[in-house]
Design a binder for these strands. Structure first.
Lengths: 350, 350
DNA sequence: GTGAAAGCGCTAACAT
DNA sequence: ATGTTAGCGCTTTCAC
């Protein structure tokens, strides 16, 4: 039956409920936490009081008293990376499945701010922190975090082997796949555009790619292309590269923009992808999959990652701690139709 | 001078600081809030104690006592929309400028969840809530929010004129610009793909666009294309539309995917954009700007929006309340090079 | 200018 | 099974 809800400005406290129900606040508290040792009729009258008054527990008071909160902090470098945005959403879902909420923050790619945020999480008495580090899990904010009481999991930008709990994507396996396919197809002139030389993880991966390629195809011509100081110059740089006699037959890109610009070059020169130019992107975007031909991409299992991350952090929160592990999640390489052998390219351009 | 920091597991409380400094906790509290009535030497010794002990205020306790928090809740439909993701980041910055933090959550496009989140914000005793409604500012969560003690601002998916405080983008002006340009160029066969018929705001805007076009170009053939049940069917639908004799000369798209697919069609049929097919996208994505020719887009002033939103909500928080207003932010129409007259199309196809 | 004391709303011993 | 009580760490009167 619907009851007239409390309509005054002040929110009812546990005392109001106790008074209304004719019991003590301890009993109300017990009912709130589902304690089984309360007489059914008292449970009933407390529930009535709660309903009538529109009572809701004050988590500030409860958490202050209990000394801990069902809250995990999340720190990502930026929301503007669709993967991080998606990760935050997935973590929110996972946390709520377990009766927790997340406190999401962004470090804006600043290690200094990252450190501040770790401090803020400590102030907020969160149970754990999920940190996607700006750099890696060995910086000062990471150290502070590990030395704190809070459960900590480091995600994505990690080196591993540092004794911290980490969850990352197995980019290396993906890179090996792509390198193998590259060599199998016979490409020997390869362009590798990168997005941001300051992104340590990306640089390590680009280097790993180059190593793999050079090991499997000795003497291959591999050009790593950092972004020019002015973004608009990238188009010019690409135009020049593709105008040269030693033009690449394949682009393996860490940079979304470079993919777009390569498509522009191809269209202008009436090259067809993949027959005149092969493409592959390590960063997946929806439009790349919708293109014809579909651009090959690496896709990250974000939802799986969120599950793994939350499993991991709750093991630590619940003190079911074993040794810390580096967890590696396989990612899916989807070659699409954007890579083929460079034969036609050779025929066409010599 | 560096001092040995407190290294025990427990965090120092205001009592430890008071004891260390040889003053009362009231004095420590005053020093923490910058009260001017404390003797300089006491300020000094309290600061020493804080430094020595590594004291940090417990915001849970402080906020519980004070009855309010320097926190504003943010509820967006999803983080996966780049605009919302970007908005959350911008709001985070703005809030922190004013000494506040945000509590970001996503309603996952569910009005039910939106309502729950409003309740959660109330439980959390936030000072205000910034709500990007799933539907509009007249739903039950919005009503609950307006009836609460919390300052409320509704953003983006709003109808206006409801007496609530709203901040939205002036899509209508942008649509009028695009419609005017369309008519000026002489297009009379126009395709309008939409992303999601359940998105009320988008539907209203699409209808407004159609009205504008029909008013300015009576008898024009305007086809609104909702997404097929299976996403993959969209390519087929487009192929069919562009294969017909009455093929559109212009696509005004509310759907990013449709733009990509139109480019595919154009490439396959060897049509050039804009000479054989004109394009415009109401949703801006980075790759569209990098294309050659650059696709015309509408860009939203997200940073301005964040400033306006925070200004608005702080006026309400600080009780500098006047009447509620509907604020409209101009957005930038950037036509790029993807629209031209349909002359060549007529010549080519009759 | 300072400190004692009350209390924010809750949880958890502990006594009954 | 229930109630009393003592705090959690802080802010804020209000005497002094």
């Amino acid at each position: 039956m619907a009851v007239a809800k409390n309509t005054s400005g002040v929110r009812p406290s546990i005392h109001s409920v106790a008074a209304y129900a004719g019991v003590s606040i301890a009993t109300v508290s017990k009912v709130m936490q589902g304690d089984k040792t309360v007489r059914p009729e008292n449970v009933k009258s407390v529930q009535n009081a709660i309903e009538a008054l529109g009572y809701r527990i004050n988590p500030l008071a409860a958490d202050l008293r209990r000394g801990r909160r069902n809250l995990v902090g999340v720190i990502v470098p930026t929301y503007d990376d669709p993967y991080y945005a998606s990760l935050v959403g997935a973590l929110e879902r996972q946390a709520e499945t377990r009766g927790y909420a997340i406190a999401a923050t962004s470090s804006r790619n600043s290690e200094m701010r990252e450190l501040e945020l770790v401090g803020r999480m400590e102030d907020w008495r969160v149970s754990g922190v999920i940190l996607v580090p700006v750099k890696n899990e060995n910086g000062s904010s990471a150290r502070t975090l590990r030395e704190s009481e809070m459960a900590a999991v480091f995600v994505d930008n990690v080196t591993g082997g540092s004794g911290a709990e980490t969850v990352a994507f197995d980019y290396h396996a993906a890179i090996r796949d792509v390198a193998a396919q590259t060599v199998r197809l016979g490409h020997r002139r390869i362009l590798v555009p990168i997005q941001d030389p300051k992104n340590q993880t990306q640089m390590r991966l680009a280097n790993y790619l180059v190593e793999q390629l050079q090991a499997a195809a000795p003497g291959a011509n591999i050009q790593v292309l950092p972004p020019p100081s002015r973004r608009e110059k990238l188009a010019e740089a690409l135009a020049e590269i593709f105008g040269s006699a030693e033009r690449p037959t394949l682009v393996l890109s860490f940079c979304e923009l470079a993919i777009t610009l390569c498509l522009n070059v191809a269209r202008r020169l009436e090259w067809h992808v993949p027959h005149d130019l092969s493409l592959f992107s390590f960063k997946s975007a929806a439009w790349m999959r919708a293109m014809e031909p579909a651009i090959g991409v690496v896709r990250l299992p974000i939802d799986n990652a969120a599950v793994t991350i939350m499993d991991t952090i709750f093991q630590k929160i619940d003190k079911k701690v074993t040794a810390s592990r580096d967890r590696l999640l396989p990612c899916k390489v989807d070659f699409g139709q954007s890579m083929t052998t460079p034969e036609r390219i050779r025929r066409k351009f010599g």
